[in-house]
Design a protein around this nucleic acid. Structure first.
Length: 500
RNA sequence: GGGUCUGUAGCUUAGCCAGGUAGAGCGAUGGACUCUUAAUCCAUAGGCCGGGGGUUCGAACCCCUCCAGACCCGCCA
């Protein structure tokens, strides 16, 4: 059974799937797996005929941990302040919004539409107040769990609430000095003494307590998370114990997922620079392919993503499955997979990606490509065409391997050819001259005849033609390829080489 | 040092939870289509299921152990 369905089929009743992120920097493709895993589970639960609600938590009250490499030195003064309080690297938005808003748009284009909840607002609206109070009152029990499960000793003055200093704005640089009726008094390292109201966004729970607190307050029943949380003594372990033993709430069903590696480079990290930003993915990869990359692999396995040559194969593989789906030839598992990838895909025809990667290298003019590709029986919608052409261009520019790239030779570009090769070119010229139509089929037929007449091996004959047109031994399927070129200029090129 | 997850054909993988002859796609090779690339169809090859041990009539599957990769066992998320 498809992994999502098999996971979902073990559940019963109404479900709430939750996942989220701390918007501390540029969000990359690796982070997409998290929300995508949640989305697959959410949709799988619905396929099993259960109600499911999907939420995405943006932890915008988390403090800035350090001056990341992409930030100017001046951010040193903001370290320790909530991400929602500090300015973005550019523009009018706050730091957290600057990073999360484009990602929400990316999710929408991937047809992932969770309810987005800002954790800062949960605090601000007092939704977490009661459970903060409970955590403070039961801090002994929480402390025991943390020490027992993680094997570490907490400091004597450990307190399950980090006030935000009213003067310097930092979280976690203040020492708690007392608690009374929802007010936490503190003394900050900046010298300020004050009080935080736990029913406002004047502080936050430490992560290991905040996680189970959110489970209970929001009623979470399923949560996917990276394997770093899932280790023994890790935050899921302690969260589960705190949730069940302290808060009396059954911990959500966990789903651990591995990370995405970039082929030949290693794990994606925002800090190491080894990553593809989420928005950039959508500039070259169609949404259904992005979904396919993640959905096809069980979460526990890492994904070795190759944006280069392997990417085209992946697109081909996907389109093959898509055709089979339309013909009703897929088994149940593959059908489920495709349904999950296609969610939101237009019913309109979509042009072949590989085909476009060739056309965009011949023409710089998009409308020309449009008229060529709309020449056949199948017509494509303008906006789809435009988007896919742009994607193919981007792929060629950023990720195409050399063997997929070519440049059309000019009429008089010099080429050294053997007499045999020249014979093929001359024969091709005469075949094409006597042919009426300039279609892939007739061109291919002409090429076949020309090669036959020249007495050359087919493979070598085709190589000669590619050599003449693009200076390489291999190229796109010849008939289709030449048919996309201007007939006159092809003929001129052939005459030039033949007459030389 | 301790723990978790992963390891099945060249590549991507199904099967593992409930043990019973290892399946598929891509790629490769060969062939067909009055014939040749990134097209279609057919066929073939390719696996001591990471290694070893155990339980069992029988293990890819359960148990132990070793190897490899990733992550965790400080803080933070």
């Amino acid at each position: 059974m498809y992994w999502g369905r098999s996971f979902a089929s073990q559940m019963s009743g109404k479900q709430k799937v939750s996942t989220g992120i701390s918007p501390s920097g540029y969000i990359h493709f690796g982070n997409v797996r998290e929300v995508m895993t949640g989305d697959i589970i959410h949709k799988s639960i619905q396929m099993e005929n259960m109600d499911s609600h999907f939420i995405y938590l943006c932890d915008d009250i988390d403090p800035l941990r350090k001056v990341y490499p992409f930030l100017p030195e001046s951010y040193a003064e903001h370290v320790g302040k909530p991400l929602r309080d500090i300015p973005a690297p550019e523009g009018p938005l706050k730091y957290s919004e600057y990073f999360i808003q484009p990602f929400i748009k990316t999710m929408e284009r991937l047809n992932i539409r969770p309810e987005v909840i800002r954790t800062g607002e949960l605090y601000r609206d007092g939704k977490l107040g009661d459970i903060i109070d409970e955590s403070i009152r039961k801090r002994g029990a929480i402390r025991n769990i943390l020490e027992k499960f993680s094997g570490r000793e907490l400091e004597d003055d450990w307190f399950p609430y980090n006030p935000r200093c009213a003067q310097c704005g930092r979280i976690s640089s203040a020492k708690v000095t007392g608690y009374r009726e929802g007010k936490v008094s503190y003394e900050c390292s900046c010298g300020h003494k004050g009080e935080s109201d736990i029913y406002k966004d004047e502080g936050k729970l430490p992560w290991r307590v905040e996680w189970p607190a959110k489970w209970k307050v929001l009623g979470v029943t399923v949560e996917p998370f990276g394997k770093d949380h899932g280790t023994q003594g890790g935050s899921y372990d302690t969260g589960k114990a705190i949730s069940e033993q302290v808060f009396g709430y059954r911990a959500p069903e966990p789903m651990m997922f591995e990370r995405i590696l970039l082929k030949g480079k290693g794990a994606m990290h925002s800090s190491t620079g080894i990553n593809i930003p989420a928005e950039e993915m959508l500039r070259f990869a169609p949404p259904e392919i992005i979904r396919y990359v993640i959905a096809r692999v069980p979460p526990a396995r890492y994904i070795d993503f190759d944006p280069g040559p392997g990417f085209l194969n992946l697109v081909d593989e996907y389109e093959r499955l898509y055709r089979m789906l339309r013909e009703g030839n897929l088994d149940q598992d593959k059908k489920t997979l495709l349904d999950l990838c296609n969610a939101g895909r237009s019913q309109d025809e979509i042009p072949d990606y590989r085909h476009l990667t060739t056309l965009v290298q011949i023409y710089s003019d998009d409308s020309r490509i449009g008229s060529i590709i709309n020449n056949g029986e199948v017509k494509f919608r303008d906006d789809i065409l435009k988007e896919r052409i742009s994607m193919a261009r981007e792929w060629i520019r950023l990720y195409a391997p050399e063997e997929s790239k070519f440049r059309i030779s000019r009429t008089d570009d010099p080429v050294e050819m053997t007499p045999g090769q020249k014979t093929v070119i001359c024969a091709l010229h005469s075949e094409l001259s006597s042919s009426v139509s300039w279609t892939p089929e007739s061109i291919h037929e002409s090429a076949r005849k020309a090669i036959e007449k020249s007495g050359m091996e087919p493979a070598a004959g085709f190589a000669s033609i590619y050599f003449a047109i693009i200076g390489k031994e291999r190229g796109p399927r010849l008939g289709f390829f030449l048919s996309g070129l201007d007939r006159d200029s092809v003929m001129k090129r052939l005459i030039f080489l033949c007459g030389e």
